[in-house]
């Protein structure tokens, strides 16, 4: 049995049916890339996978159990990064990282947060309030969460948006390391990204 399994998923937004009969299964070390034009329901699918939205039909199982009955246990195993990065303007980069990790159930030391931010190329900017950071830098603050949370499943909605080529490369190694350790990733992206480790599946939404 696969670890994450979606069967017969259907999404309805208002009057429109965005997709139906979506099936996939994901095992340790696998990457699922969701493709599709704007408005095809990529974000809706990812929100369903997190448990933020309920599918109009079908179900999503984690280790064979419906995620709706798992709730907290499942949330502890995933990290979701949506369009909105969840970075507070008035807090510094380091405060942002420490608070968002605490929210995810992992309280981290200032030292560890420093290291993670340094790794994301934000060394020297840890104490700046997020409002003076650029779009790409804020994105990096959000992505730093992936380094410290230690979750198995990453659900990433356009993680490469607003990132420069150096950061894209960094992200690529990060994903490869995660998959190499037996982690799983579900992501949407418009940019092509080369992942060599692990099996990559593609899911096309129309």
């Amino acid at each position: 049995m696969s670890i994450l399994q979606g069967s017969d998923l259907e999404c309805v937004r208002g009057d429109r049916r965005l997709f139906r009969d979506i099936n996939f299964s994901l095992n340790a070390g696998e990457l699922l890339q969701v493709h599709g034009p704007n408005g095809s329901g990529k974000t809706s699918l990812l929100r369903m996978l997190c448990g933020l939205a309920t599918p109009a039909h079908g179900k999503i199982c984690w280790h064979g159990t419906d995620i709706r009955s798992l709730k907290g246990d499942y949330y502890g195993a995933i990290t979701y990064l949506g369009h909105l990065s969840g970075v507070k303007d008035d807090l510094t980069a380091i405060e942002n990282l420490r608070i968002s990790s605490a929210l995810a159930g992992v309280e981290i030391e200032a030292k560890k947060a420093h290291e993670a931010l340094q790794h994301m190329g934000l060394g020297g900017r840890e104490l700046l309030p997020a409002k003076v950071l650029s779009q790409g830098q804020r994105r990096r603050v959000a992505l730093a969460r992936l380094l410290v949370c230690g979750t198995v499943l990453w659900i990433l909605d356009e993680p490469l948006a607003a990132l420069d080529s150096a950061a894209v490369k960094l992200m690529q190694t990060l994903l490869e390391q995660h998959l190499g350790k037996g982690g799983m990733v579900v992501m949407t992206t418009h940019q092509e990204i080369d992942i060599t480790t692990g099996a990559t599946q593609r899911l096309q939404l129309t």
């Binding site: 933020l52 979701y80 909105l84 507070k88």
Partner: peptide, 9 residues
């Protein structure tokens, strides 16, 4: 800013 989504998760 998306923090609420993180709270729900």
């Amino acid at each position: 800013d998306g923090t609420l989504e993180q709270m729900l998760l």
